[in-house]
Nucleic acid binder design. Structure first.
Lengths: 207, 207
DNA sequence: TTTCTTATTGAACGATCGTTCAATTGTGAT
DNA sequence: ATCACAATTGAACGATCGTTCAATAAGAAA
């Protein structure tokens, strides 16, 4: 009679990938209102029950989505830096340019991040995803600063402390721009970070 | 027979103050789990219905609590700076010292702030409280930078841009320290900010 | 003491939440 | 073509949410 199937079966791994993507899309579009299993399953085009078939709880899905999105964003930036041939200083500039583009500087990301942070307070799983991705970001910053610091013309400075300062400034500017993009332009944020690194290389800080 | 009253009446203003305080205490203690009217009313020692008698909705109470807490914290810092006699540069240092003390740098505040940010996405009222208090913070930073810039030995720099850079660094370090206090010590954050201002006054940045 | 105002209570309501599970059905293996 | 497995469905459950509102009673005014 009716030979159009009511649903399509998928292998667990493929379905989980779909669910993760749907979760990210859902949080992008609806923010904290997109956090419910019904909202996510509607976005994924599947029934409510399927989420708990593939995940022990909603929190595990959120944690996976967190890790996927954060890793993707960082990887996008890293790829752009890797494609740039040049000195460590030029690579740092390439990093800033990518960071202050819509690859990172996008209000939808803060909208999602707030939900992740909110969930981190409730769920151990989400907090673990947070810690892992945060460490990856800081490691990347520190690596670039180390390459800078090993140049012959570079003054002595504390790599760890410099990485904290720079990622603090990056995070802070990202946060503030997302909270209110009218306060300053992305290029101004970029200029502030370039200036900070110039100051560092000129020995203006005692680190 | 029983002459101990079942409850004590309070004037609306006094009761609202109690509710605001209870909300802040509740969010401090329980984070996002302390957001419900039942949780808040239990903390305040009153019945569930009373909140909606004094506030049209829960969001209005949250917005009031946001504004109260943010204003109080900023005021505490301003008071300490005001008590400090000295040059604009010394006042800036007093500000940093207060900022990197538990007056501002306290994990419980981020826990509360995440709830506020989370609510900002849902409630226009909460977002207004956020915008207002954020502007007050930035205004204070810019004022101190202006006092610095008007010194005869100061180089020319853009006050607005400098305020964005400094408050970005302050916000970012606050956020990162609260997310994971083991990454760096408060004194290190203070040192980074002092170094940034020293660089600014030495003309290391082109702002 | 009596009256009147209104702050306060707490049960009730409808909505929504995450999760469960028996029934269904797509799909590859036989 | 048939079987067996398991991916998928969707109704149902109990918990919790914010809000409403009729009943109550505290406390000032008369």
């Amino acid at each position: 009679m009716n030979d159009t199937p009511k649903f399509r079966r998928q292998a667990p791994d493929a379905r989980k990938k779909d669910l993760i993507d749907a979760t990210i899309r859902c949080l992008e579009k609806k923010g904290s209102d997109g956090l419910s299993v019904r909202s996510i399953s509607a976005e994924a085009g599947i029934s409510v029950g399927l989420i708990n078939h593939h995940y022990p709880s909603k929190d595990d899905l959120i944690a996976d989505a967190y890790e996927k999105l954060a890793t993707d964003i960082l990887q996008n930036v890293i790829n752009i830096v890797a494609e740039t041939d040049g000195s460590p200083r030029e690579k740092m500039s390439a990093f800033f340019k990518a960071y202050f583009s819509s690859i990172v500087l996008d209000q939808k990301f803060l909208r999602i991040w707030i939900v992740f942070w909110y969930m981190s307070d409730k769920s151990e799983k989400v907090r673990l995803s947070h810690d892992k991705t945060n460490a990856g970001f800081r490691r990347q910053i520190e690596l670039m600063l180390r390459n800078l610091g090993e140049l012959p013309e570079a003054p002595d400075f504390n790599y760890r402390l410099a990485a904290i300062g720079l990622s603090g400034m990056l995070d802070g500017l990202w946060l503030e721009w997302c909270l209110n993009p009218e306060i300053f332009a992305p290029e101004e944020g970029l200029m502030l970070c370039e200036g900070w690194v110039d100051g560092l290389m000129a020995g203006a800080f005692k680190l």
